[in-house]
Design a protein around this nucleic acid. Sequence first.
RNA 1: UCCUCGGUAGCUCAAUGGGUAGAGCGGCCGGCUGUUAACCGGUUGGUUGCAGGUUCGAGUCCUGCCCGAGGAGCCA
Length: 445
Amino acid sequence: MAETIRIQDIARHVGQEVRLQGWLHNRTDKGKLQFLQVRDGTGFVQCVVFKKEIPEEVFEAARRLTQESSLIITGVVRQDRRAPGVPGGYELGVTDLQVLQLAQDYPIQPKEHGVEFLMDHRHLWVRSQRQWAVLRVRATVIRAIRDWLDDHGFVNMDTPILTPAACEGTTTLFETDYFGEPAYLAQSGQLYNEANIYAFGRVYCFGPTFRAEKSKTRRHLTEFWMVEPEIAFCDLDQLMEFEEQFVSYIVRTCLEERAYELALLGRDTGPLERVVPPFPRISYDEALQMLAQIRQEMEDEELRELLKIEWGDDFGSPHETELTKRFEKPVFVYGYPTEAKAFYMEPWPGRPEVTKSVDLLAPEGYGEIIGGSERISDPDLLLERLRDWGLPEESFGWYVDLRRYGSVVHSGFGLGVERTVTWICGLDHLRETISFPRMLKRVYP
RNA sequence: UCCUCGGUAGCUCAAUGGGUAGAGCGGCCGGCUGUUAACCGGUUGGUUGCAGGUUCGAGUCCUGCCCGAGGAGCCA
């Protein structure tokens, strides 16, 4: 009996009779000649059925196949540059076909659909080529993240998802019942990993993060994945070096391993090829000057209004988008105003109104994919900040403790997986970068 | 929460100034030996988001509501 192979390995079987197990993705019927596009999870391949080459009942079975029917198909692999698929250029000259289930009325057609319809059918939409490509890039991004960190001395140290209070005390949290007490779904593991670095030096947590913000934009999910490395004996400059090496590795891995997928998505990989260290670094103050300049040259009245900003304000999406359009690589913006950032950030030496914080903005208008900072290492300063921010000292007792027993300079950052995948894939909305997105108006399916 | 746009066949959309709701795709039947979202012929298909109002007559005008999309704020 013919060997069962996977489509991704098809190039190694030219001239052999093989079996594929999969689903009918699409078809073209030319009468006595049929083209079946079959997918098996690892790729897409064209299977060609000639009436005169196979028994009548097999030809009839092929003729009656419907979109998404499950099947086992046997045939001889041959090279043909006309054959579409991933990898393209190979097709199967069908000799036998076994239909496992004939699908009825599959709702998603190979044509344009609206977002609402597709999201209602997300459980089926993931089968389509674009979604398949995006989600495979995501898997590669995640593996690249772990590989790089594991190879650079980081210890994976996952942190609790059920937490007693806001880590940063600002954004809205999802509340849940914890045996009669309120508990909240984590929005960051950072504070816990600031404890873990004192045991392991370099650590990272990687998991889902929850924000109950009523954000209704193309760059927000209520449940998203974030990797948060935290590093002992690391200041802001060293942090930026980590970040640019890290991000460059992720991008390069996708270029090397997901070339088919990026091509299928129509991604221009030119801008991604340029993602190599060092990345440009500008201060918040310089960024404000650039924005002022951009505003002056801006013809669009409405956009000019949106780009208004005063010293002390954090950037909004329009600011990030316009800034990053001016750079060919991801760009670091460091030194944000203290009042716009979290309580735990180390003040700039000699400028208490500025923090040793840094965001990494992805180019081509994509904007923030990383937020990070050097953390306060002095216990008295930290206590002062807790008071200034109006946070309950007793809740942060353990956190202040970390500054009492061998405190060291340390830094860390959080990278948003979905935003990174959106950028690498060149998408205009991050909802396609996770298999079942959770958004303001979406918890089904 | 605010601003803008939208909701008509399974899907994507059309329908003059208020006058019998239509096309493509899909499905079904038939044809075709190189298709790439094939093509050709036939056929099937509707509580126009919901409720009320104006009118001889409402997909179209008015009021309220529901749902979705894009953006702002907030953030990764």
